[in-house]
Write a protein that binds this DNA or RNA. Sequence first.
DNA 1: GTACTTGCAAATAATTTGCAAATAT
DNA 2: ATATTTGCAAATTATTTGCAAGTAC
Lengths: 141, 141
Amino acid sequence: MQVTEQEILRQLRQQGYRVTAPRRAVVSVLQSAEAWLPPDAVHARAAGICPSIGLVTVYRTLALLTELQLAQRVHWEGGCHGYALGDVGHGHHLVCQQCHKVVAFADCDLSGLVKTLESETGFRIEAHVLELVGVCPSCQA
Amino acid sequence: MQVTEQEILRQLRQQGYRVTAPRRAVVSVLQSAEAWLPPDAVHARAAGICPSIGLVTVYRTLALLTELQLAQRVHWEGGCHGYALGDVGHGHHLVCQQCHKVVAFADCDLSGLVKTLESETGFRIEAHVLELVGVCPSCQA
DNA sequence: GTACTTGCAAATAATTTGCAAATAT
DNA sequence: ATATTTGCAAATTATTTGCAAGTAC
């Protein structure tokens, strides 16, 4: 279910973007992170792989990945947000409150709710943001 | 379903907070707004009611209302966020993409999904963020 | 070789804090 | 009367932009 690093780099290349050391580093960090990470954390970890990487490049790379739907922004109560690699298209996250570990899932069946609300409100519903928050197995101990 | 302005002010008083002109103005703005508003927009509108109000006070009041669960933060793809009055406890939003109008709803049945995911992942799921995005009736024209 | 990328420094935007003056109770 | 709340200015923090130097293709 998790997209591989290779696959992401391939997609970048395929769409005409260059595969550079800083981009590899960012993808690698997100790929191996169990958790979502805010930009500065991505930067700190990526610097271990590609020491010359600048924070600005991290921002730009995250924006690029998000635009290509290869990563997704994770919202967090309180206004902070971070990034995690996402499945192409439609992905949701289950996030651990304590360690920020992220598990992605795609099958959310909201069609019943969507239909009910559409007829009650007259809205045409086009998208949704769904995030579940809880405690992961290892933090339950 | 919408909480009234009076009710909110009463709750503030009841919990030992003072009801001041700036706070009244912020509550009034959120109450009469059909849409969620970012802090600076709340400030601009509140200034029409209480001209001396400062942006800082708006931030503080929004934080207070959120803490008391009288308002809720609305997330928006792209990182921007704003506030809307919320039902006490558990509230979700249906937001119009074009005019930012917000309709709150409380009954989301995610129990099936939650159960499935809990057994699949081992997480204990405690909360969720759910926001629907669409186009409201008046913007469909 | 050339166009895309990078990193730096500086600009901008968003949010928070310190503190004396104002005010709700 | 007095503890809370306000508004200002300044401090932080988060994010974006301009531009010359570097690099993938």
